[in-house]
Design a protein around this nucleic acid. Structure first.
Lengths: 333, 333
DNA sequence: CTGTTAGCGCCTTCAT
DNA sequence: ATGAAGGCGCTAACAG
């Protein structure tokens, strides 16, 4: 005969106080006599009482849930953001409810609806690219909303990330300063990844500011990957158009490019300089550490959670937190 | 004046049916007249009604939540498992509630309690290594429980994964078949990662079966990483003890080892053969594809979800699903 | 500092 | 095929 799991009432009875008092102790709300609290906690411990979250959510129309919507888990960047989110959540009673969109705004919209059905305390999404409906649902929800990775647009409530446009500009400036003039570009499909596009734009922008432009470029028609980087660099070099440096849409692609050079016996950076984006560990483990832009993904997730939890209400005006970026000099450009 | 979000009652009133009927339509339960269903769905659409999950969970003492507890998100393997889980969940009304333990059984126990407080439909954990309390909570919960990655122990309910011991044996057999006799080992801290330990045991086991043993070994005192692999191989070679092949605790480590060889001008596999575990993309993108064991992480997650959702009750006897492994011949061993 | 009184929105059970 | 009644476990609002 298994006795059903204990509830507030059981704790209250065992302690000879009202349910409400027990509830207050659990939530650290209102003033409670030291002795009462002690007895309540004792009873909780004795019974192994665990609050029923669904009941709590229903009664308070709010839950200890943080909704998290990520475009992908294949790109290592997002697991790192998620890691930051969990780091920010550790030690709090909040749990992350995670959904993945596969870069599909339609799926994102469904996930927004699905997560809002849980009355989450806050929702974290990626970027600014939502369907109108999704955006309206988020706006109307009145809960806190963080849009991560990018800060080049006006957020619903809070944006945490870096300016990809500026990161692209900084890349150009770095290469020009190093004396590179014939600069090529190897990218991936940016219909989904509009931040890669923003970096590209910043890059071209800054180059044209000093009277330069991309000498040659190739784009892989699909998501970024090491293998795509390797193969796309091969295609770029096969054009025969000389380049002394190649900028990659991100580190995955750039590492693939580096491995291509190793295989082809190309001296990096003497014969060809390489530049990435993200600052992934693997890039720094190469025989020559990759020159790239560090984009603190972990920190973006952690900072976002901390900001969201530190203030329950939306601030009067949308807020932006710039987590910045750092040029990693490396040895490949 | 913002009207509060619509509830079942609103839909019922608009349709002139009882709440109950609306509820049945939503849950596809019981027989409903075609025409009634149509009108209800119309009303739902018109009002933009979204069911309140907390209320549903409270009333049914069950929720459309799948609890997921992972040891880490730093190791790419677990994001891939999570990706599989989300793939299995896509198209269902279930959401994943994710927690991360940092390989700490104490944290795992707290997460188990925290997730069970939501009345999840099932819980997915990693491995068999739980505190007694955590195990008891999971057993007593009566909900479905999957233990992932490993199948070398008796599960609470369902295990999905591969035999790491056998993978280790297969590694030894492969190397011996290829003619390697002086085999070294480069590993990482396995107090946390007991599956790496199981592979190591299988490796040693199979070697001693043919009268061999590890010639030399070095273990990095920390989690696996490319940089750790690179540096630990350097330390192993610095011992001066000759080895013609080195087995790494996983692909991250092995890729680091490969990159060390590139930097040091060591011919792979002529001067030194390398062997990994996991079959990560990066290993296959190397100038010489890494010889390794493919461990289908994605599939483990997806298979687990499908198995859990296909049967609401625990089967009479604990069940094991072997997702197997595949030796990737590669070019490094 | 503590208790009382009403729900929160839905699902289950039993009728019809 | 549909409805009525009751309650899931907790919290909010107000008393005292």
């Amino acid at each position: 005969m298994r006795s059903k799991t204990p509830t507030l009432v059981d704790v209250a009875r065992l302690t000879n106080v009202s349910e409400n008092t027990v509830s207050r102790v659990i939530r650290n709300k209102g003033a409670i006599a030291k002795e009462t609290r002690r007895r309540v906690l004792e009873a909780i411990d004795k019974l192994g009482y665990v609050p029923n979250r669904a009941a709590g959510s229903l009664a308070s129309s709010a839950s200890l849930i943080i909704g998290v919507i990520l475009p992908s888990l294949s790109n290592i960047v997002f697991p790192e953001v998620l890691r930051g989110i969990h780091a920010g959540l550790a030690g709090t009673p909040y749990q992350a409810m995670v959904g993945v969109t596969d870069y599909d705004p339609g799926k994102e919209q469904k996930l927004v609806a699905a997560l809002l059905a849980w009355n989450p305390t806050a929702v974290i999404v990626t970027g600014f690219d939502h369907t109108d409906t999704a955006r309206r649902m988020l706006e109307d929800s009145r809960i806190r909303v963080a849009e991560l990775m990018d800060i080049d647009n006006k957020p619903i409530d809070l944006a945490v990330g870096l300016s990809h446009r500026r990161a692209g500009r900084a890349t150009a400036e770095h290469l020009v300063r190093r004396g590179y003039r014939r600069i090529g570009y190897v990218g991936h499909d940016w219909t989904a990844d509009c931040r890669a596009r923003a970096r590209y734009d910043g890059l071209c922008d800054a180059l044209s500011g000093v009277g330069l432009s991309l000498t040659v470029e190739k784009r892989h028609d699909g998501p970024s990957s090491t293998i795509a980087g390797r193969d796309t660099l091969a295609r770029l070099l096969a054009t025969g158009i000389a380049a002394d440096a190649v900028v990659f849409s991100n580190d995955d692609m750039a590492v693939g490019g580096f491995l291509y050079c190793v295989g082809a016996g190309l001296q990096v950076p003497q014969q060809l300089a390489l530049f990435g984006f993200n600052g992934l560990e693997i890039g720094q483990a190469l025989p020559k550490p990759l020159s790239t832009v560090l984009s603190n993904r972990f920190n973006i997730g952690k900072t976002a959670v901390e900001a969201l939890l530190s203030q329950a209400e939306r601030p009067g005006e949308a807020q932006i937190i710039d987590t910045g970026f750092v040029i990693l000099d490396g040895a490949t450009a």
